[in-house]
Design a protein around this nucleic acid. Structure first.
Lengths: 336, 336
DNA sequence: TTGTAAGCGTTATCAA
DNA sequence: TTGATAACGCTTACAA
């Protein structure tokens, strides 16, 4: 049970522990022969350095933390996988925590965590990316962090996002080009930056084509399928229906599809529907959803990579999105 | 930036660091006055013990790890939340890792992780719960572990599950009582214990009522909605259809509902559908799914609690399930 | 290029 | 009931 330590390796290789440490950390100024001897000893003993000891003695903990509070398991899960994959590449491990923004002692919880477990960095996913309490607690600790898809204070620190507004603009324009004029929009949760950016893109596209924006066609959802259902019911259960509904994420679009189905409204002949995110659910519904693919896992992987390489420079990393046209959108029906 | 250590607390309280340590760990033999003095100092300085130091010096790391490889983000996410909640109660933190069972160097990956980051315990979720390589690697390290919903070697160590077979038996019986005789079954991924147990319950129920089990009505899925769609197509796209389909999880049941929808088959009048798990998706489809509710988050919370309290005794903890009857099941249609 | 010695912030040992 | 003092397994100065 007694585990193998750096001393065992040093002894076996016939060098000092400092030299073993050098090899382990890829430091320069080690003779090639010595390096090989040490590596051989490490391999023979199947030695793994103890994380706690490393963390206590040195300046890195080989731990990253992902903070989230997001109603979409698909989205979070995708972020987790991207981060885990990247962590593994570099011998890092991922710690996760669910934060409750409306918790009264959020500040305490966060700062207690920060000071007891010193991770090498935090990945903040929306809506935590814009949470002032969390941000300032982390900043106070001096720990590096990266925000995924933030909305405010863009020059506050490093972040990763896609051009949410541009994507919504493009998709809306595509609907307009198909002849749609009554395009409804279902907004996401107000705490998420994407909500505002996507809505901005939608309204800009209408404006660009000179189509008036009617508040009757804009509904407030919260990114959950449930809210998509509720909003769709309001939008579709009336005399004059929109010819298209742009739900600002796929889960809400699923809700729309379910309602359309139930009401016997044919998609896309009578109603075009599109979503955002290209989550697995987009390919399950029939017809499959026209949506925007964003590289979720790549975003968190990049975040992890930046934190691990210790080069998270202030400023943004903009990744590419892609409009994915599937069967749920089509030409606007002619009004009788 | 220099963080507050146990020395600062000791100085402020006018005691030795050992005494502070005693108070921190709730050890006996500390005078009440002393205890209060120390607690006051801790509060004033807002001191938090350093995890790495604790882990290095002592026998606990205040870290738990959840291992998974599961196609259902809903399920995994629910397990994570249960574990996180419980961890927070006791000042623990949760580390997660995605394992690839078919990876050639799985053994290495697991044992490397185990020996570099010494967690106080592992929570194994299906299908990892039955992975021999992972199990023996953990056992070799002497780290406690708890299996969620395992299938084999039940007396190998502690585990937590529900009576999957019993639940499937009850639900199948309910369908039989509604008059169904042609009840199709969609199996889950073969690596998951639940797959075999649920199928066992289904067939036992048929046997109990003297209804012959037809292999034509049993399809092999993998717990993904996609596979539910594929199996449903095979089952429904034929002259003589089953009158009910029991999908062994909700995601596959969603697939079935989508296909039925597409084919214009009315649920539940022409076809009864039921699922298993009572995931959020069960309430999204229309009609809502009849399913089995299992306390996923409670299962992982219990696992965490047992590991933290260091009392994971060999043997099982059986939690209650509940049949949830909703609109997707009804009396069998009369054959013309 | 290599090694010695001093921490890092806790818990464990053992004596007072 | 308390407190010196020695680990724990590493990294970081600083020498050699």
């Amino acid at each position: 049970m007694a585990s193998i330590t750096i001393n065992d390796v040093a002894e076996r290789a016939g060098v000092s522990i400092k030299t073993v440490s050098r090899v382990l950390n890829g430091e320069p100024n080690v003779a090639e022969v010595t390096r090989e001897k040490v590596q051989a000893a490490v391999a023979e003993l199947n030695y793994r350095p103890n994380l706690s000891a490393r963390s206590l003695a040195g300046s890195r903990s080989y731990l990253l933390a992902l903070l989230f509070n997001n109603p979409s398991p698909d989205y979070v899960s995708s972020l987790q996988l991207g981060a885990i994959r990247e962590c593994r590449k570099f011998g890092y491990h991922l710690l996760i925590d669910w934060l409750e923004p409306q918790s009264k002692n959020l500040e305490d919880e966060v700062s207690a965590t920060i000071r007891s477990v010193r991770t090498d960095g935090y990945i903040l996913s929306p809506p935590i990316s814009d949470n002032e309490v969390v941000l300032s607690a982390i900043e106070k600790s001096g720990t590096p962090y990266i925000r995924i898809a933030p909305y405010r204070d863009m020059d506050r620190g490093p972040y990763i996002n896609i051009d949410d507004a541009g994507a919504a603009f493009d998709l809306t324009t595509q609907l307009l080009d198909l002849g749609h004029r009554e395009i409804a929009f279902i907004k996401g949760h107000p705490d998420h930056g994407a909500t505002h950016l996507r809505y901005g893109g939608y309204s800009a596209a209408l404006r660009a084509k000179g189509v008036p924006l009617s508040q009757d066609l804009v509904k407030q959802g919260d990114f959950s399928a449930r809210s998509g259902i509720d909003c769709a019911e309001e939008l579709l259960d009336r005399r004059v229906r929109p010819t298209a509904i742009f739900a600002s994420n796929d889960e809400m679009a699923l809700g729309v599809m379910l309602v359309a189905n139930r009401l016997g409204i044919h998609v896309p002949d009578e109603l075009s529907v599109c979503g955002f995110d290209d989550m697995p659910v987009a390919k399950l519904v029939w017809p499959q959803l026209t949506t925007v693919r964003q590289p979720t896992a790549e975003m968190s992987a990049l975040a992890a990579e930046l934190l691990i390489s210790r080069s998270p420079e202030r400023g943004g990393h903009l990744l590419d999105f892609q409009i994915v046209t599937r069967g749920s959108t089509g030409p606007a029906p002619r009004r009788s």
